[in-house]
Each structure stands twice: as C-alpha cells, then as structure tokens.
C-alpha cells in the first residue's frame, strides 16, 4: 500500500464526515491563499498539525517528513525572490563577489518567508484531507458537489488500478532482479522497457476482464454504488465554523492593514 493511502485508513479522523473535512480543508486553503498573512499561515500550520498528529494519530515523524518534501522545493524556488545579484547592496544582507553583490532586501525576505509559510499552510490543508480521508470518501464528496459522473468514475477506476498495476510492476521487478535484470545501467534500461510494455499489455487485459466482470453484474454504463455515510456532528460543525470565521476576520484584517 502507498503510505499516504495507508495512513488515511488508520487515521482516527477517518470516520468523521467527509464533507466536513473537505469543507474545512478547502475553506482554510482558500483563506491561506487569499490573505497571504503570516499570522494566519502560522495559525493554520499549528492547527492542522494538531489535528493531523494529535487528533488523527498520524505519527509526527511521518507528518514532518511529508511537510519537508514541499519545503525543499519552496526554499529553492523562493531563493529567486529573496536573492538578487546587484551592483548595489540591499538592506538585509549583501555578499560581495567581485564588483557585484549577492544581496537581498528586508521586503523581499519578508515576501519570501510569507510565500513559504502560505504555501506550507496550504499544503498542510491538503495533507489534512489526504491523511484523514480515504479516496473513496473524497470521491463521494465530489459526487455530492455534482462533479461530472464520468470524471468521478474514472478517478475511482484509476485509483483502484494504481494499486493493481503497482503490484504487477513490483512482482515483475522482483523477477527481473532474481535473474540479474538490473545488473547495470544497460540491463536496467532494457528491463524497465520490457516491464513497461508488459504492464501496458496486462493493463489492457485487466481492463477487459474488469469490464466483463462488471457486465456480469448488470453494468449498464453507470457505476452505481452506495457510499458509507458518517453523519456530521454539531460540535465538529461548530468548531469548523468558529475557526473559519476567525480566519475570515484575520483575512479581512490583513487586507485592511
């Protein structure tokens, strides 16, 4: 199983109403992006951290690990905003290289930190959703939001097939390893190509077999399935509403400032 997928199935917040979690994550993400406020971003990071680690039971080390993945990209891309090469030094820092300076201003430094924190807070909203909500629940929310059936059904099948094809590719890869198929770069490339072609053929065969199996159960062009419903709790709705109103006030305050 893919780790993120496994985590959401073991999360203590898994059985919380999916629409509540989706609404919370999306509204919070929206406020993060709209406000670009440092205070709001820090608040969201802390709250999402508490919700995911303390309430959801996701190990802190895992959560930290997943947050550092975008952090590395963010720092690298923000460097372009913070660091300038100029003939005149700016106010925050300046390193002389010949007749040029590697320099940055307090304003750009602030902008860079603001960008990093806003992006991290936004990512934490998505992590909250993906660490605590199984894909099938997210798809049922999308269905309720009148997302086109074709799209939702495609996502459902793709999600299922990711795991099937991963299993097949893993067993092919093991069997190639057993026969020294990845001995050097040349054989690795050859083995990878062979695996890709076999995977394509298997995917086609599996899709044919799946279609037959669905037809055998009276499939008539629409994937009709029941979703397990976890009823929303008024206490949870109250706290979500409270937090979102707080974020709204912070957003207005940051814009009026």
């Amino acid at each position: 199983m893919i780790t993120i997928d496994m985590l959401c199935y073991y999360s203590k917040l898994r059985y919380m109403n999916a629409m509540e979690k989706f609404t919370y994550a999306m509204l919070t993400l929206l406020f993060c992006v709209v406000s670009r406020s440092l205070v709001l971003a820090i608040l969201v990071l802390i709250v999402n951290g508490i919700l995911t680690v303390n309430k959801g039971g996701i190990p802190f080390s895992r959560y930290r690990h997943y947050l550092t993945i975008p952090l590395a990209f963010l720092i690298l891309s923000t460097l372009a905003v913070i660091v300038n090469i100029s003939r005149t030094p700016l106010d925050a820092f300046a390193f002389q290289i010949g007749s040029y300076y590697l320099t940055g201003s307090y304003a750009s430094l602030y902008k860079g930190i603001q960008m990093i924190l806003t992006a991290l807070a936004s990512v934490s909203c998505l992590y909250f959703l993906s660490f605590n909500t199984p894909m099938t629940d997210i798809l049922s929310v999308l269905k309720k939001l009148h997302c086109p059936d074709l799209l939702v059904e495609l996502m459902l099948l793709i999600y299922r097939y990711i795991f099937l094809l991963l299993d097949i590719s893993f067993s092919i890869s093991v069997s190639q390893d057993c026969r020294l198929g990845n001995r050097d770069f040349r054989t690795s490339m050859k083995s990878f190509g062979a695996m890709a072609s076999v995977l394509l053929i298997r995917a086609m065969a599996k899709s044919g077999a799946l279609y037959d199996a669905m037809e055998a159960r009276c499939y008539d062009g629409r994937l009709l399935v029941l979703d397990e419903q976890y009823s929303p709790k008024s206490r949870e709705i109250f706290w979500i509403a409270f937090f979102e109103i707080l974020l709204l006030i912070l957003t207005i305050w940051s814009k009026l400032r």
Binding site: D212, L224, L226, D227
Partner: peptide
Amino acid sequence: SQLFSASVYQEISF
C-alpha cells in the same frame, strides 16, 4: 479482475 472499487461497501453495493 472483479473488484473495481477501493471500498468493500461500494464494491458489494454495485
């Protein structure tokens, strides 16, 4: 080849 959904409940209800 038969199970198309990731959820047991959805699968059985189909």
